[in-house]
Design a protein around this nucleic acid. Sequence first.
DNA 1: ATGCATTTCCAAAGCGCTTTGACACTTCTC
DNA 2: GAGAAGTGTCAAAGCGCTTTGGAAATGCAT
Lengths: 343, 343
Amino acid sequence: MNLKQLSESLGLSQTTVSRALNGYPEVSEATRQRVQDAAHRHNYRPNTRARSLATGRAHMIGHVIPISTRHEMMNPVFSDFIAGAGEAYARAGYDMTLSIVPDDAEDATYRSLAQKKTVDGIVIHGPRANERRIRLLQDLDLPFVVHGRASAEDSDYSWVDVNNRRAFSRATELLLDLGHRRIAMVNGLEDMDFAIRRRQGYEKALRERGLEPDPELGASDEMTEHYGYDTARLMLARDNPPTAFLVSSLISAIGVRRALEEADLKMGRDVSVITHDDELSYLGNGKDVPIFTATRSSVREAGRIAATTLLDLIEDPDRTPRHHLLEAELMLGRSTGPAPKES
Amino acid sequence: MNLKQLSESLGLSQTTVSRALNGYPEVSEATRQRVQDAAHRHNYRPNTRARSLATGRAHMIGHVIPISTRHEMMNPVFSDFIAGAGEAYARAGYDMTLSIVPDDAEDATYRSLAQKKTVDGIVIHGPRANERRIRLLQDLDLPFVVHGRASAEDSDYSWVDVNNRRAFSRATELLLDLGHRRIAMVNGLEDMDFAIRRRQGYEKALRERGLEPDPELGASDEMTEHYGYDTARLMLARDNPPTAFLVSSLISAIGVRRALEEADLKMGRDVSVITHDDELSYLGNGKDVPIFTATRSSVREAGRIAATTLLDLIEDPDRTPRHHLLEAELMLGRSTGPAPKES
DNA sequence: ATGCATTTCCAAAGCGCTTTGACACTTCTC
DNA sequence: GAGAAGTGTCAAAGCGCTTTGGAAATGCAT
């Protein structure tokens, strides 16, 4: 059933039917009712392709997820972000498309998204410190919001981000207060912007206490379970091992815990661990008392915010860019305790 | 730059330009070259909305992900599935849209997807045993592929699934061979089809050795880390506790391990654990030797297969439904060992 | 030259919707 | 009772592309 058929069946013109359905005032309440009833009865829904051709609006948001060509890694955080964003879109009558893009072939994807006019706006995931996509999208004149930020980019653009620097400096301070001096940093890939900020927070906190970060205690890679395990194992085997680990992801923290257990070290007593927790729906950091002491910030909430920000931007393109800096909560769990006495 | 402008700039008709670009034979090689060069130079890409209005094909696949209203859970498996499917779509020039749908408001979503003509086909995720969506889509006459199966559905439809029954009966047999008699089943939600099949495999293997499944040793819930932990803790605290756990997800298995460690039980010696491993990119079950003995099947590969199956189906709608039953590998890891002697 | 394929190109219709501009018909105002 | 103002409706254009049904131009054999 399309508009034409519907209007014929009602003995009205397409115009009137269209207006009645789209809430224009030029149509009497009586006909509007009649039209809506009929539409409902025939289960009529306008063809999106035709509608967006006519209106110029696709009612569609694109999410572009770079997939690391080196590791073929899907960002685990992404699914919960999407869930949050999806809610917002659904409420506003928008759809969402996903482009999974090998991180070497990006330009083409963005250009094509812009020119094919499939989407009204896009969300950039996983910005690197030196991020070309932002400039590109500005040139293409397509509204966008970044989940994260790009340190090297000095133009103004909309983003939603966690205060990574603050979160990690606070976490480091907590460990320092507990007497830890050898604190390892098990970070994400350090060409990612979030990882750089976390490291900055960590180093700042150390330096403020007169400590110089030890390169031996730094690691950086894709945040898998196995990476956490390997790194912790390696570091613990060296002389003068760390007494605390600061970990960038709950998944890697689980790997760290595995290494500790294998080395017969008790987490929270022999070695302390703090992790960042994105509150992924399936992971969960304990129920009442957190397993890990953690800097916590809901990535799902970030998704919701990013989506509504973008929708606003599309609504009114002249709007100045919006920024949302989410503060992570520091949750005390069982994985932290005073540094063991020197033996 | 649109088709009209491009054709004017070339002094050709829109028809010729369109044909030249879409590889129709009615155009000379010389003009085709000329057109392609110009298109490339001007960075021309056809407007998808217009194109699909004209052709009737959206070049878009919809993925519908039910989100449990009870638990607000995002299926962790989904992101890797999507990654696999995405590859296939990209190769074929298709895009993908995501609908995240509360599991109570499904009918409407499917109806609307079908009628708004936004997609050419859809992938159904997370089928339940008694799945109405399949019948619905058949009625709507929209090509689809199911990731998983629906036991209660007797019509023929295309699906891609792991042989869950076989995987779990083999795993159970292994545990039985190792001398275990009290084997717990930490299953997913048992209104999900995959969970039912896994339980069937488990029970079948037990019965074939003359054992009756003990309801005390069965659990069923959303497969979070915490669920694994809670369940294992509870079961281990009872008298006559299980000596082995069969777990439906690596994430929950990590929870089980946590419970074991807390109870000072050594996994693989005191208590054995087998889990199903979907080979999620960020999780990884160890590198050389698997941490957990596991039934393993790549969900990413399943995504690839589902996508190509669906694309074939769209290409030729008369094709009979295709079925892909993937066999899970049984990987021996360190989490299994002979049942401890009765004390 | 003529006739007939073959090649190369085009004008125009159509996809299903929104939206403009106009028309007919009431109702109100002085 | 004429004109203004308001109400309810419509025909038709247009969004940017594909595709149908020809037409013009070319090549080739007669």
